[in-house]
Amino acid sequence: MASVFEPSMSSSISRQPPMSATAPSMADSLPSINFGFDDLRDRMAKFSARFDNFIELGRKRVLEERNQFRMNVAELQEDQRMKKKDMEILQLKTNTHQQTISKEAAETREMQAAIASLTQQRDKNAAQRDTLKRQITETRAEIDTRLAAQRAHAARIEAQARFNVPELDFWISNLCLKIEGAGQRDRLKFVYTHIDDRDWEREAWFELSTSSRDYDVRHCRPKLEREKVDRVLEKVNETRELATLLKGMRELFVEAVKS
């Protein structure tokens, strides 16, 4: 360290009486003092250069760190924006998925309801089918029974007709009668003429049903009172004589034409 300059010493020296020229100087007897200003100046210059370099490096480092921080913040903001966008897209997909699930659930319920309805309808149709099969079987049996009865009755009629042919020809001739088919297997049509004094060609007819054991008149022209026709049929079914039917129906037609 440099020596400290003391002003009191110099002032005391200056107050001493001058010494003779031949006497040795006090300054010469003092030790020489080297403060090292050049070295200090050089050291200070180097320190200033290092300090300026340190400050410059620190400033650059601060700028770089600040720029890096800004870049990091910008990246974080961009990442946050992208994540927010991804979250919005994910939320939209979630909403769409939920809507799809709700729609599929509704469609599933509708399909289940339709399946239940179809199953119920199938069971109902199966029950109706079984009922119809049973009814068809019963109807076929009834038809077979009726056909057998009709065939037996037709056989009896045919057998009786062999004996009644001469008598039938007699009544056809005397009652002005002709027998025709009525378009059905179990029906006969009896047509009369000469029942109207004013028009001998005028016809009156009735259809006789032989589908059952008892005779039955289904249609007639001109129209007759049903009670009178039933009385004639009652006699015929009791006696089983066709002549009674032919005579009785002609009398009813003559009476109807006159009235």
Rank of each mutant, 00 (worst) to 15 (best):
G183K: 02
N53Q: 14
Q184T: 01
K228S: 10
M44I: 08
R122H: 07
E107S: 10
E225M: 08
T94D: 07
T119P: 02
G248D: 04
R59Y: 00
I89A: 10
L246S: 00
R134T: 13
L63P: 02
R15C: 04
F54W: 10
E203N: 01
Q77G: 10
A149L: 15
K60R: 15
L246H: 03
E104Y: 06
E255Q: 15
L246Q: 01
F51K: 12
R156V: 02
K93P: 00
A2L: 07
N67L: 14
E56T: 04
V191Y: 03
M1I: 06
I115S: 06
T239Q: 07
A126V: 06
R43S: 14
S10D: 13
L92M: 09
K46T: 13
T139R: 09
R61K: 15
N34W: 01
S211V: 13
A154Y: 11
Q150H: 09
I115P: 01
V191S: 02
L208D: 02
P24M: 05
S11R: 14
S48W: 03
E227K: 05
A159N: 12
A27P: 03
V229D: 02
I115C: 05
K228Q: 13
Q135G: 01
D130W: 02
S173L: 03
M82W: 06
I115Q: 09
T145F: 04
A161Q: 05
A127V: 11
L147P: 04
I115G: 05
E167Q: 08
